[in-house]
Design a binder for these strands. Structure first.
Lengths: 181, 181
DNA sequence: AAAATACGTCAATAATGCTGACATATTTTT
DNA sequence: AAAAATATGTCAGCATTATTGACGTATTTT
């Protein structure tokens, strides 16, 4: 027997780096960045007894008022049972209202209330600030490059869906007017 | 009556955009990008009966072989109870081994095995490819801008932690001896 | 010897996802 | 008009990943 159990358990002591042509550095930066990116709204949501799932629903209902349940499921890529709980809570707490579809009355069009709009804005504010501060700090300046990059990160099939969404605040800010830095 | 219940449930039909100075577009692009970014390894992990939590542990153990349980908890920002299960599975399946700390024998230094190293590389490969394809497609070219941006997205307190990690693939670092030997 | 530390583990709970099954209202097809 | 398909809601059960609290054990520090 050259080996009993194929050299079971031999510890490797060298760190992985770029030797293998794999960019571990950016991979983990993306992980850290996303984690902190979501931490701001998470804190606010906790005050309402809501979670990240509520945020996503609230976000897309505010982005595309009047979307149907089926459309929302398609965007979020979750099942209707998963959506049911969070949507019900958002409706019960008067953040979202349902209206029967005008053409097809089986459908439920989802709209934010003023309360829902306000919460969506409150949740998005720190995220937007974080992004734009990071753009400034990193010297990327305007949002164009990042928009292209992030869009390129998305699976091609999904990009169409994204393009449906309302226009970007393209460059209504030339010099980052929120004077945060 | 000006309002019975503060205009309860009045549906808002206008989409949120940049009017409020908030960049909803980039916020949701970040969401979509991260979702697809994690979907590649998720598929591979499913074959092993593993989840995203296993991936993260495997990643950091490969990045910093010999880190202790406490250090891993600190990086991941989870509790030891959360870690326990996934770590146990990774050890039982011979992806990770534990060695008693040389100075302090209470500590467990975590190392990847060859198997664990191979899996970490397999998981990272599609992610690295996605990132670099996106960099090319978006015209950002080299990874420098994105690295700066993502690092700027991370909470300042955490950036120190990140800098400990091994070098990036493009330029091997000059100084920064991995003095741990 | 006592206290603190590093780690493991048991138990209970929560948030978010899943599948399957079935009900109800409405629209489309036959 | 009857049957089939569709959009949604809901019940029931389950998995994963996280949480907190409590306790045990080995080891180091005081």
């Amino acid at each position: 027997m050259a080996d009993r159990k194929t050299v079971r358990g031999a510890p490797i002591k060298t760190p992985v780096g770029g030797q293998d042509g794999i960019d571990f550095s950016l991979i983990e930066l993306f992980f850290f960045a996303y984690r902190d990116f979501t931490s701001d709204p998470d804190e606010i949501l906790a005050d309402y007894g809501f979670g990240r799932a509520h945020h996503r629903v609230l976000h897309f209902v505010n982005r595309r008022p009047g979307l149907t349940v089926a459309e929302l499921l398609d965007v979020l890529k979750i099942t209707k049972q998963s959506l049911a709980r969070v949507l019900k809570q958002l409706i019960d707490t008067d953040h979202i209202v349902q209206l029967p579809g005008p053409r097809d009355r089986r459908q439920r069009e989802l709209y934010p209330t003023e309360k829902g709009r306000a919460l969506a804005l409150a949740l998005a504010r720190p995220q937007s600030r974080r992004i734009h501060t990071a753009l400034g700090d990193s010297g990327l300046g305007n949002r164009t490059s990042i928009e292209l990059f992030l869009k390129a990160m998305v699976n091609p099939e999904l990009r169409a869906q994204i393009d449906i969404l309302p226009a970007s605040p393209t460059q209504q800010r030339s010099g980052d007017d929120d004077g945060e830095h």
